[in-house]
Computed example of a mutant assay.
Amino acid sequence: MPGSPGVYRMLDAKGEALYVGKARNLKKRVTSYTQLVRLPERLRRMVALTVAMEIVTTHTEVEALLLEANLIKRLKPRYNILLRDDKSFPWLMLTGDHPYPQLAKHRGAQARKGDYFGPFASAWAVNQSVQTLQRVFLLRTCADTVFANRTRPCLLYQIKRCSAPCTGLIGGADYAVLAEQAKAFLAGKSGALQKELAGAMQAASDRLDFEQAAAIRDRIKGLTVMQGSDVINPASLAEADIIAVHQEAGQACVQVFFIRGGRNNGNRSFYPANTSGDEPGT
Rank of each mutant, 00 (worst) to 15 (best):
V56M: 12
I72V: 09
S129Y: 10
L83I: 15
I159W: 05
A240E: 13
R9Q: 06
R135K: 07
K195P: 03
I81K: 11
K73C: 10
D206M: 12
A204Q: 15
Q35F: 10
T58E: 01
C142T: 12
P99R: 11
Q181G: 01
R207E: 11
G191Q: 07
A125V: 13
A240M: 10
E61R: 13
C162A: 07
T50F: 02
V245E: 03
R45C: 04
L67F: 06
I232M: 05
K73N: 09
K189V: 03
H246I: 07
L66M: 02
L75I: 02
A187H: 04
L92I: 08
T95D: 04
L11I: 12
I159A: 09
G172F: 10
V126Q: 06
A109I: 12
L49W: 03
L71R: 01
E63M: 13
V254Q: 13
P40I: 09
L43D: 01
H59C: 04
D230N: 15
I220P: 05
M46Q: 08
R42S: 11
K14H: 11
S229F: 08
A184D: 14
V51Y: 07
V51C: 11
L83Y: 12
S129F: 09
F89Q: 13
D12L: 06
K87G: 04
L67Y: 06
I216C: 00
L75D: 05
L138Y: 08
T34N: 11
G21D: 01
P234Q: 00
Y271G: 10
R84Y: 12
Y157K: 10
G172Q: 15
C154V: 02
I55P: 01
T60Y: 00
R78M: 10
G168W: 04
Q35K: 10
A123G: 15
M10P: 01
I216M: 03
R263D: 11
K105D: 05
A48K: 14
A187C: 01
T34V: 06
Q202L: 07
G21Y: 01
K27G: 00
L83R: 15
H246P: 02
L94G: 09
A273S: 08
I55W: 00
L82P: 01
E196L: 10
R219C: 00
L82I: 00
E248R: 12
A192F: 02
L43H: 06
A179T: 15
F185D: 07
D241I: 08
A244I: 04
W91Y: 14
G6A: 04
L71W: 01
M226W: 13
S4H: 15
N267A: 14
R78V: 04
A213N: 03
W124G: 05
E196F: 07
A109M: 10
Y271R: 11
A182Q: 05
Q227P: 04
Q110Y: 08
R45T: 13
S269G: 01
